[in-house]
Design a protein around this nucleic acid. Structure first.
Length: 842
RNA sequence: GGGCGAUUAGCUCAGUUGGUUAGAGCAUCUGCCUUACAAGCAGAGGGUCGGGAGUUCGAGUCUCUCAUCGCCCACCA
């Protein structure tokens, strides 16, 4: 028996361990069709946030649904080592303990990282458990485990051999805090207010000067030229002259290049090839010297002599001061431009010339774009997100994959003097030294859907579960991750890694702002589980918005879901109280009351609709339909109608409906549905091993269904009518209607039938029901006015509909069923009107 | 500069290929402790679907346009 009150803490306690002990989350039933999902591996950097809760709840809904539908489901868990994100956290942690990463050394530092990983992965697993996720832990993987390392190295080597991975000296995004290269995707641009300085570059042996505009005076130590547009009239005569770079007094030429914009600043650009991408390219064209003036940790180096050692910010201040003293600044302008920051450390990113490893993107992206035109394409839900992928693939730059970090997959390349060897292991002879760098963390996550299943070995899991069926993730990482999985899978597996890609939105706070640490508006899912239960949180997250849209987190709504669960709980209690005689589940279909037929048909429709919604991943629809069915059909009508009945058939129907409700709710609310299910008199060991309800052609009962619907509509109208006319329970009345619904009307309206009543009556009447209520005369006048009102409304509606039905265009072009519906409606309206007119004439 | 999305009741959001009188939850108002449930029951009020134009028998839904907000990408001396 169920407790008196729904107490989610009691309900949720112990369930997960029970499921684990029964191995319900494990895949492998060969008799069934496989269905697989790999979890987007969370970073081992910290706790799960609401976004994770949304992402994983959606996947659990899918997996539990598919399992009940008879699939052999695999949901593969795992986590991401998150190279730079984790490394910077561990560095900070050590720093707070007074330990420096470099003094500690590579090996010891990595030990610290593994300790960190253990601690945080356990924490994350506990959170998964609290959420109730049906993950197959036997298959758990980590992006830095041995198997994945093998996959990573294999991919690296193959791409290298193909010429699609290369080493090169280029301007890359440099994070001076982590002291590593970054990919373009790891740079976040923010608008920042700064200044545009107009500097005098004097001509050699002259006081005349050319004015150059720059936002970064601290880079002038690397200046090797001043460039102007070759078609710029105002500078035509100075091209080829030399000017002197302030402070360093270096003599540099004025060169002409079409890439310089005539109307930006003064139209003259200082060229610093080591510290700007455009400058680098112009420098290469004109064969200019490249002078790096910045240290890896963001300070000026020996080329900036008196300023050596200053941070870039400090240096700028000092340099502007000195230039002002020397009267070399023409003017300063307020200027807003976007500045790149490192996604993980927040550092201002420096364009920095260095030697790095790159993935050549042209062929890989071309192949993916081609594949998206074939049957093997990844189907995005909603489809618009495919555009984001395509757009990114259409103009993506080569991918910088080397990172000057320690926590990650070490690059499988060895050097000996000028020789390079790329392979799984170092060559046998002595003297070979492995590359110090590791790979971008996304390089290993790009392989996730197949590396986790055992690739490059040809495992049974690969054969059975690859490609996976659906990938669920947020739109913010489509090109970080989805795109990269797509092209690596295409290259190494020959097909897309998943058939569908379900994209959800981000969770925002109630004002619509992103949740972030700096705003302090983050919501901890564990706190919400503590307050409302995992079932409520899951139902809220998965059924509130439509897929792909952002969601404003609303705690009140969460509260209203606990009310819904409470309603389910109480309804279940009622059912359990009333089905004590039940021995089997066979409903006698020949011996049903009209309301039995109605609820069975209603359930049947609901099953059909919900399956449709679930199959299309429209969980909000499914959730709403369940809510509607449970509360507004089952509880409000059927349960009320069964009160006072205790025949076996009714008991069996109650059990059937409750069981099916629980099964359909189970993917969303695994805990409470299991709890209630297990208290049913006829049940399996767990709801998890039951079969999802199926549509049953035998339980349609169209005629009775329609009649009951109409009866319900009448009851609602009559209740309203009673309130408006101050008709109390005790008021005597006469009832005229179809025999089969008489009982329902009396029960639901609590009618006091008295056939001997006489005197004046006010009358409710429709085409189905007529009730005469015997009340005092004073109310009757009021009543007459109301009827007149109603007549007016009806007349208008009839007029409108008649006009519509006289419109030949409408009759000819609209589908027949729509027109018929209007005709039927018109007929009914006319009948009602006649009744009302008759009433008023009396 | 290119692209995407949003704008529907006081608030948070649904509204699937155009088709009866646009829905839900919360909030508000009225009346009820009716033995599953006051975390409840029964009722009510509240929207010219951001503005404008067009296509159509018919537009919240399709097209164009304007406005506001948000996001992504590119550029930024």
């Amino acid at each position: 028996m169920l407790n008196d009150k729904y107490d989610f803490k009691k309900v949720e306690e112990g369930k997960y361990d029970f499921w684990l002990s029964k191995n319900y989350f494990e895949c492998g039933d060969k008799r069934k069709e496989p269905f697989s999902i790999v979890i987007p591996p969370p970073n081992v950097t910290g706790n799960l946030h609401l976004g994770h809760a949304l992402d994983t709840s959606l996947q659990d809904v899918i997996i539990r649904y598919k399992k009940l539908c008879g699939y052999d489901t695999l949901w593969l868990p795992g986590m991401d080592h998150a190279a730079i994100a984790t490394e910077s956290k561990v560095v900070n942690k050590l720093k707070s303990e007074g330990i420096d990463k470099y003094e500690l050394g590579r090996e010891k530092f990595l030990e610290e990282c593994w300790k960190w990983k253990e601690e945080h992965s356990n924490n994350i697993k506990n959170q998964w458990k609290k959420l109730g996720l049906s993950l197959d832990y036997r298959k758990e993987r980590f992006t830095l485990d041995e198997g994945l390392n093998k996959a990573v190295n294999t991919v690296f080597i193959k791409l290298y051999e193909k010429g699609w991975i290369y080493r090169g000296k280029k301007i890359i995004n440099w994070d001076p805090i982590a002291m590593t290269a970054l990919s373009n995707e790891e740079v976040i641009y923010k608008e920042e207010k700064s200044k545009l300085y107009y500097l005098k570059y004097k001509f050699e042996n002259s006081e005349d000067y050319i004015t150059v505009a720059t936002t970064r005076p601290e880079t002038i130590f690397g200046d090797v030229a001043v460039a102007v547009n070759d078609e710029d009239e105002k500078y035509k005569d100075v091209i080829g002259n030399n000017v002197i770079v302030p402070l360093v007094n270096r003599v540099v030429p004025i060169i002409a290049d079409s890439r310089v914009l005539k109307d930006f600043g003064t139209g003259a650009l200082k060229i610093t090839p080591a510290h700007a991408i455009d400058d680098y390219e112009i420098g290469i064209t004109h064969n200019l010297e490249i002078i790096n003036t910045i240290t890896p940790d963001g300070h000026l180096n020996e080329y900036a002599k008196p300023y050596e050692g200053l941070s870039l910010d400090e240096a700028r201040k000092k340099i502007v001061e000195d230039l002002t003293k020397q009267n070399l600044i023409v003017k300063e302008e307020e200027y807003t431009h976007s500045v790149g920051h490192s996604e993980r450390t927040g550092a201002t990113v420096e364009p920095y010339l260095s030697e790095q490893w790159f993935v050549k993107m042209d062929e890989l992206s071309k192949n993916l774009l081609e594949n998206q035109k074939t049957k093997d394409k990844i189907n995005f839900i909603p489809p618009r997100f495919e555009k984001i992928l395509k757009h990114w693939m259409e103009d993506c730059h080569d991918w910088c994959i080397s990172r000057q970090l320690w926590w990650g997959h070490r690059i499988p390349v060895w050097y000996k003097n000028d020789e390079i060897y790329v392979g799984l292991e170092a060559p046998k002879e002595p003297g070979w030294v492995q590359d110090n760098d590791v790979l971008d963390t996304w390089f290993s996550s790009a392989l996730w859907p197949f590396s986790t299943l055992g690739w490059p070995s040809e495992t049974e899991d690969i054969k059975r579960y690859f490609p996976t069926n659906v990938l669920v993730t947020g739109y913010d990482i489509i090109f970080f991750w989805v795109a990269r999985m797509a092209f690596t899978s295409l290259e190494f597996m020959g097909k897309s890694p998943f058939k569908y890609c379900l994209i959800h939105g981000l969770i925002r706070d109630k004002q619509g702002r992103k949740m972030s640490k700096s705003l302090g508006n983050g919501v901890d899912p564990m706190e919400m589980i503590d307050k409302y239960g995992a079932d409520a949180l899951r139902f809220y997250l998965t059924t509130t918005g439509s897929i792909g849209m952002d969601l404003r987190f609303d705690e009140e709504k969460l509260l209203s879901i606990t009310k819904f669960i409470n309603k389910l709980w109480n309804a279940s209690k009622f059912v359990l109280m009333n089905i004590t005689d039940i021995k089997d589940t066979n409903i006698d279909l020949e011996n049903l009351k009209i309301e039995d037929k109605w609820i069975l048909a209603e359930l049947n429709n609901t099953i059909k609709e919900i399956r449709k919604s679930m199959d299309k991943y429209r969980f909000n629809d499914a959730g709403n339909k369940l809510y509607e069915f449970i509360w507004n059909k089952f509880c409000d009508w059927y349960i009320e109608l069964t009160k006072g009945r205790n025949d076996l058939n009714c008991q069996k129907i109650l059990l059937k409906i409750l069981t099916n409700i629980l099964q359909m709710l189970h993917p969303f609310m695994p805990f409470v549905t299991e709890e209630i299910y297990k208290s049913l008199p006829i049940s399996e060991e767990s709801i998890m091993i039951t079969e999802y309800p199926k549509y049953n052609k035998k339980e349609v009962f169209l005629e009775e269904f329609k009649l009951t619907e109409e009866t319900i509509e009448n009851i609602t109208n009559i209740r309203n009518y009673k309130v408006e006319n101050n008709i109390s329970k005790e008021t005597a009345c006469k009832l005229t209607t179809k025999e089969e619904i008489k009982e329902i009307l009396i029960k639901m309206l609590k009618l006091n039938i008295d056939e001997s009543s006489t005197g004046s009556a006010i009358i409710y009447s429709s085409s189905l029901v007529k009730i005469e209520f015997y009340i005092s005369d004073s109310n009757k006048e009021e009543q007459t006015l109301k009827i007149k009102d109603e007549i007016e409304k009806l007349k208008q509606s009839i007029e409108k509909r008649e006009k519509l039905l006289q419109n030949e265009n409408y009759i000819n072009k609209a589908p027949k069923n729509i027109v018929d519906l209007d005709r039927e409606k018109l007929k009914k309206e006319k009948e009602e009107l006649a009744i009302l007119l008759d009433k008023i004439s009396k």
